[in-house]
Design a protein around this nucleic acid. Structure first.
Lengths: 225, 225
DNA sequence: GCAATACGATGACGGTCATCATCTAAAAAG
DNA sequence: CTTTTTAGATGATGACCGTCATCGTATTGC
């Protein structure tokens, strides 16, 4: 849900104060808003093309600016990379709040998500790249993952101590499983049978394992004899 | 198993004919061997630093050459990227042949594999990057995945038609699950508790689901009452 | 042995990149 | 109103990148 700010304007913004006054230069609130817009644009572009796949100049142009002002907002490209990652991750968390595991999987392990990298989950889009990045970016990813786990776990709430543990185990496993399915499918040529097969098989299996239960409490309410 | 060729020499090779004659220039067999060595070196470096993370000159230097001879072997860097990917993928397949699913998971979802990117699985190391690459690389990945599935399926051989289907389903699901676990763990800071937790939880769960069975044949031999 | 071939080294090319210096004009501070 | 500050534009810098031209030399085919 919640298609956010940065989806409406792409190029050719500028002079967009709240009242629409033309060619005003910079108000303090505008600058802050512009900064947020740059971060959102970067988050989308990085997800689509990778950290190395988009340069500062192109990025600023996509946000509607020239490259010059960049270092008035960020100390370096690496700084923006960390901030854009955090932004994308918290967006995924926000979208997940109030969604139970089954619906999460249904949305996550889907063709729409796989084919919409720029608007999809940052973990699936940049998790592979994050592994090669400096610690600050990895820390953002760990925090994002932890928050996502919390959001997912909050849905299947069972306030026992052992149940809490089992719920976390289940959610961690489900997330890794879903991320792997999307990444594997994306590595295959667009529209190839294998890409779709991976997605379909995994979605079905993950949903089944959700209804099924974990290894600690094997098949508590399964339909066996 | 099978620590391969490219692991022994890193820098400072050159003049390495079979007899060890010094400063000999080029024999036809040597050239072919050098080419293979470049591909193997590239495969390792790409896994460690990504396709964009290593340049042609640095790559050739790591193989013990200067950058000049590169285009006598490959038409472009993109060409080498595809070939190095194929090489790495078939290495993973070769190492997997004769290994059953449980042992595969034990090795794959491990700290050793997570921390040894250059020597590990190409899918886990470059799968995220492959999604943004041109079709020829994606095709190599699809072929590699298919071969890996075949190798894994060959171990759990049950020659029924429905069993064949179920076996493929199980192997696809298991691979995606394992890949996701490693990638998620790698995205976390080195040595962080979450990185290890993801790995440990997922390994245990995947192994449990192997013994457990798929959703089509729920819990055929589980230890329930 | 002689000519042709081609591996690999050296060097250079255009392009792109992240970053910084400088300038402007308007907003903020007084 | 005056001064200071600063968002953003323009342009330049140096490093790096992929690719190609050239050349030497040893191997290969005759």
């Amino acid at each position: 849900m919640s298609i956010d700010i940065y989806v409406c304007w792409t190029v050719e913004r500028r002079a967009s104060t709240e009242e629409g006054t033309a060619d005003m230069r910079v108000t303090k609130a505008q600058a802050e808003q512009n900064r947020a817009h740059i971060v959102a644009t970067a988050s989308r572009l990085f997800r689509e093309r990778g950290y190395d796949g988009v340069g500062v100049a192109e990025l600023m142009a996509a946000a509607g600016f020239t490259h010059g002002g960049f270092y008035k907002h960020f100390r370096s490209k690496a700084d923006l990379m960390a901030e854009a990652s955090a932004s994308g991750l918290s967006q995924t968390v926000a979208r997940t709040e109030g969604v139970d595991a089954a619906e999460f999987v249904e949305r996550y392990v889907s063709r729409e998500h796989r084919d919409g990298r720029g608007d999809g989950c940052t973990i699936a889009a940049l998790g592979g790249d994050a592994a090669r990045q400096p610690v600050d970016i990895k820390t953002e990813f760990a925090a994002g993952i932890e928050n996502l786990l919390t959001a997912l776990q909050a849905q299947s709430d069972t306030p026992g101590d052992a149940d809490q543990r089992a719920a976390r185990t289940m959610v961690i496993d489900m997330l890794a499983h879903s991320v792997g399915a999307v990444m594997l499918s994306r590595a295959c040529p667009d529209g190839s049978p294998l890409a779709d097969e991976i997605l379909d098989v995994c979605r079905k299996e993950i949903l089944a394992s959700l209804a099924h239960g974990s290894s600690d409490q094997p098949a508590a309410l399964g339909p066996e004899a």
